[in-house]
Design a protein around this nucleic acid. Sequence first.
DNA 1: CTGAAAAATGAAAGAAACAATCAAAATAGA
DNA 2: TCTATTTTGATTGTTTCTTTCATTTTTCAG
Lengths: 262, 262
Amino acid sequence: MQKKLDREEALFRRLRQTGSISLGEAMNLFDISEATVRRLFSALEESGAALRCYGGIRLATSSEGYSFPKREQESREEKARIGRLAASFVESGDAIYLDSGTTLLQMALALNERIFSGAFQALRIFTNSIANISALTPSLQVRVVLLGGEYCMERRDFSGSLTEGYLEPFHFDKCFLGADGVTVAAGFCSDQASISSLNARVLRRSDRAFALLSNEKFGRPALMSYAKIGGMQDIIAGNGPDQSFLDAFQASGTRLHTMAQQ
Amino acid sequence: MQKKLDREEALFRRLRQTGSISLGEAMNLFDISEATVRRLFSALEESGAALRCYGGIRLATSSEGYSFPKREQESREEKARIGRLAASFVESGDAIYLDSGTTLLQMALALNERIFSGAFQALRIFTNSIANISALTPSLQVRVVLLGGEYCMERRDFSGSLTEGYLEPFHFDKCFLGADGVTVAAGFCSDQASISSLNARVLRRSDRAFALLSNEKFGRPALMSYAKIGGMQDIIAGNGPDQSFLDAFQASGTRLHTMAQQ
DNA sequence: CTGAAAAATGAAAGAAACAATCAAAATAGA
DNA sequence: TCTATTTTGATTGTTTCTTTCATTTTTCAG
């Protein structure tokens, strides 16, 4: 018997219909005690699908949904600093592309701060990520465009041949890309082939390319390379990487930007 | 002086950076009492930008953010019924288009239920709405495609010439469209011109068109018409509309589906 | 089928957070 | 400067949350 899993699934289905469920509702829905409902809620929150709130539980809807739980919390501060630094490279009049990913989301948030403070007369922002889109506030001055296509639920982004096709008519002044790993030999890599392919295409359409890299990325190998070290003009990192990377950057003329303090 | 508004803005900025703030954090961030922090949180929740949770406050991230507050709650049950009925018209193998809007979101949720229960061997779903995308679970059998383009924050959807261009290569077996208003004379209308234009184009690329209409829509005029009454093959409505619409539907051979009970 | 180990459940006690109320302080306008 | 209004902080009582433990149910080896 798996009463427990059945309940979890039933609760999740119900959640998707009504958005939220109170403690009392769940109690007489399943006819179980308050303590068990709480445990059920905790399990569902643990899984990342929902969030407990004061008197019950609610669907987790966006950025908080998947990535939040614990792992992100730690390096988020570093990524926020990287994001702010990257956002400082954006200038009025630019057409820019933002990759998908948690670091790039932090950049989108920082960029939106600058937008709010009126830093840009004109700006066109392109991205393939729903999280980025949700973080940005479009206006007459700032146009925000999503490149659609086939949806990937885990990363909440779009990639594939459709997306690459949508890229076709555009040319970017700057592109800001993430990576799942970087090695001196392979360069910038993604764990998802379709993202790799997309990023490679973005690079060809950009005048200047920035890589946003939190420290954990350096030296980590990933599935598929989309650019050699020299393919990026600028690296924005938290602390500096080790010597082998510094040498490689120097050899290819890649600029490295790290944070003094902020 | 406007300490209060300043704090509200500062809190909101901080929220956008960190996603959430606890009661204690806010207390020594602004150096104010617990009661005042609670009032501050309440105000921000009232405005719809954030949601209070157990020990503090979090960003409101998606569907719950803007439209939910109160107005939706009322007619949601009716829209959910309409959505379920509409979802029952989808068959395995279909390529379908889903319009943006609260009624269509309910259909997406109902459709996802059917997807979960394994009702479809193959299905391709196209939409221009982030809410719909977030409600659907892509898989090998079920492909989910978003038509991107210029982002509209209020409706969380995409429209404009880019979006219309992305439509070009596709042909839909069925399309499911909403409306801001329907009149016998003007037909199906939207309050946003770009949505109207998009829907008109979707109609030309669809074999069979369904209109999802909650009762409030009948007789209400809206900015721009995208189809005459006869342009839709099927109407899915909550309760039936009045006689003039029934006559118009009969004259144009449009089928009307209402709910016996569900 | 039986009995022990593991898991799930319900109840209870203490801790934390919440809403409501009221008086003091700060602010704005005459 | 004085008064009316708004904002704030403290208090009280209620609700919800977490933790702990005993009981029940389930699982699985013998």
